[in-house]
């Protein structure tokens, strides 16, 4: 009978573990961050939808009318890059909201959080590489239409650093989860 009592009951008469002692400002800071992320997500969705329509009109316009070459390609590339950045914000904000939810619930060290951070790292790299591909294709089309030209293209280390931070944090959360489990099973 007694053996059937679940694990969740065991900490009832034990002092709270240090990681659950949260500063008073923590909760409101989490709420503010959640609100900011929700707003960022909504704005990013609006941008993605607007960019989708704009790209569709640009392509249709180019197909139906007389393309003016440089302007069209540069516009489409610019729009696609903006769309990709917005899509990145939607995904990252979604995963961060998931992490913040567990922090609010007092259980941040869950295997899912490490997974979320890994996904953030992966998406950041994928979006950056896709941006390169879009710019490269834009260069190809631009060269074909215009013959030569100056196309603005820069490589930044920031996304890769962001991905490295996300992967490092994922490892921290994995280790935290392992330590939490160990603590849970220490009598």
């Amino acid at each position: 009978m007694a053996e059937k009592i679940g694990l969740e009951d065991k900490s009832l008469d034990e002092p709270p573990a240090p990681e659950f002692v949260k500063p008073k400002t923590g909760h409101s800071a989490t709420s503010i961050l959640q609100t900011v992320l929700h707003i960022a997500r909504i704005i990013a969705w609006v941008v993605v939808i607007v960019v989708g329509f704009a790209v569709a009109f640009s392509v249709l316009g180019a197909l139906l009318g007389e393309p003016d070459g440089e302007g069209d390609v540069a516009d489409v590339v610019g729009l696609l890059l903006a769309g990709l950045s917005s899509a990145l914000i939607i995904y990252i904000a979604g995963y961060l909201l998931g992490i913040l939810k567990t922090i609010k619930a007092g259980t941040p060290f869950e295997p899912e959080n490490a997974m979320r951070l890994r996904k953030i790292g992966r998406i950041v790299i994928m979006v950056e590489l896709t941006k390169w591909a879009v710019v490269f294709l834009g260069l190809l089309f631009h060269a074909r239409i215009d013959g030569d030209g100056d196309f603005d293209f820069s490589i930044s280390a920031t996304p890769f650093l962001a991905a490295a931070i996300a992967y490092t944090l994922a490892r921290v959360f994995e280790e935290g989860t392992r330590l939490k489990q160990e603590q849970d099973y220490t009598i």
Partner: peptide, 28 residues
């Protein structure tokens, strides 16, 4: 009984069950 031990030791039955079934990772 485990319940009696739990009361005398001051450790929850759930924790003693973990120990008894060999699932515990450490003991203080």
């Amino acid at each position: 009984s485990l319940t009696e031990l739990s009361e005398k030791v001051g450790v929850t039955i759930a924790n003693l069950s973990i120990l008894k079934t060999g699932k515990a990772k450490a003991i203080r």
